[in-house]
């Protein structure tokens, strides 16, 4: 972070995102925003609130419900020098437009031998916890990270929401920006107590690819991201009086993945819990453990994963809470890994 002044303003995640976008739109006339309900409504999750009033309909464009057409449009516009920010309302909707994302947006730079750049941001809402069911509650970041050619960023707090958005807009690569609905500070969703945070007012970038130690600790490392970072910090503070000193590592991006930070933290603590709101198998949590194994980091006990146990996200609150990586499951995992 290049912020130099002490941040004293507290913003929600959504306001931090909007501020980043607005500042970049002021700075660069090539930045445009498009997607469903990004105009008058201001983004279903508040990611574009007020931009239409400030920048007008030539730069903030509501689209038809045609994700293939408008994501593809973003790609073509990026190829010709614009810097589009395209919103896919819920990440769960990728199924209707994935070809443009992974076969076009992510591959054109490679297929062109580096001759054609696609500087675009695809921002999309992720996550569950409010009974939206199996088609509106997923995170799916591991799937995008699996496919080469896209950076994948996942903020956990308002300051990063702003700095990662600024970095994503300025990046010459396609960047998938996955923001958790539970961190947006929406008036129609229960507030996560940490959805508000201090955010510097001036423009700044959070470097994509650098994890952050969200809480220092000596006994066990929780590697996590997005909303789960806040859950992990809560658990860490609860367990501190018991003498368990938890380090929380916030990945901040999956691509690039800060493997050095993972290895360094686990080498220090010797114990690993991975908390991931994505499906457990074939994804990020396995990748983290593989990284630790490949680097030969010595562990004092077997690592534990707290993820969604390979089941679609259920509707009923009792069932959904049972599969999400909530505080109770994280707490149990930390105690278990401590022996």
């Amino acid at each position: 972070m290049t912020a130099t002044t002490e941040a004293t303003r507290r913003l929600t995640g959504s306001k931090a995102m909007v501020e980043a976008i607005a500042q970049e739109m002021e700075r660069d006339p090539n930045v445009i925003v498009l997607g469903e309900d990004v105009g008058t409504y201001g983004g279903i999750f508040g990611s574009t609130t007020g931009l239409l009033d400030t920048f007008g309909p030539d730069r903030v464009m509501d689209t038809p419900i045609s994700e293939t057409a408008f994501i593809g449009l973003g790609i073509g516009a990026a190829v010709e020098g614009l810097r589009p920010i395209v919103e896919l309302m819920f990440v769960d909707f990728f199924g209707v437009c994935m070809d443009q994302i992974y076969n076009h947006m992510a591959k054109i730079h490679f297929e062109s031998g580096g001759n054609v750049k696609v500087p675009m941001v695809l921002m999309t809402a992720v996550g569950g916890g409010y009974s939206d069911g199996a088609q509106h509650s997923q995170t799916l970041w591991g799937m995008f990270a699996h496919l080469p050619g896209m950076k994948v960023v996942v903020p956990s707090n308002p300051a990063d929401a702003k700095g990662l958005m600024t970095a994503a807009i300025r990046d010459d690569n396609p960047v998938i920006y996955l923001f958790h609905k539970g961190l947006q500070g929406l008036v129609w969703m229960a507030k996560q107590s940490r959805a508000m945070g201090n955010v510097p007012e001036e423009p700044y970038e959070v470097e994509i690819g650098k994890a952050a130690v969200a809480r220092e600790g000596a006994d066990v490392t929780i590697v996590t991201l997005s909303l789960s970072v806040q859950h992990a910090i809560e658990v860490a503070e609860e367990l501190a009086p018991e003498g368990i000193d938890v380090e929380v590592l916030d990945l901040r991006s999956l691509v690039p993945l800060d493997r050095d930070a993972v290895a360094a933290s686990v080498a220090k603590t010797g114990r690993l819990v991975v908390v991931d709101e994505d499906y457990q198998s074939f994804g990020l949590s396995g990748e983290i453990i593989a990284t630790v194994a490949e680097r030969g980091v010595a562990l004092k006990s077997a690592p534990i994963r707290v993820a969604v146990p390979d089941v679609p996200i259920p509707y009923a609150r009792e069932l959904e809470y049972a599969v999400l990586p909530r505080q109770d499951r994280i707490r149990d995992a930390v105690r278990k890994v401590m022996g």
Binding site: T68, A69, F70, I71, G72, L73, G74, I75, G76, A77, A78, V79, E80, L82, P84, D99, Q100, N103, H104
Partner: peptide, 11 residues
């Protein structure tokens, strides 16, 4: 799938 990017170039 070549159609959608053409829209962006046109824009």
């Amino acid at each position: 799938e070549g159609y959608p990017p053409a829209l962006g170039q046109a824009l």
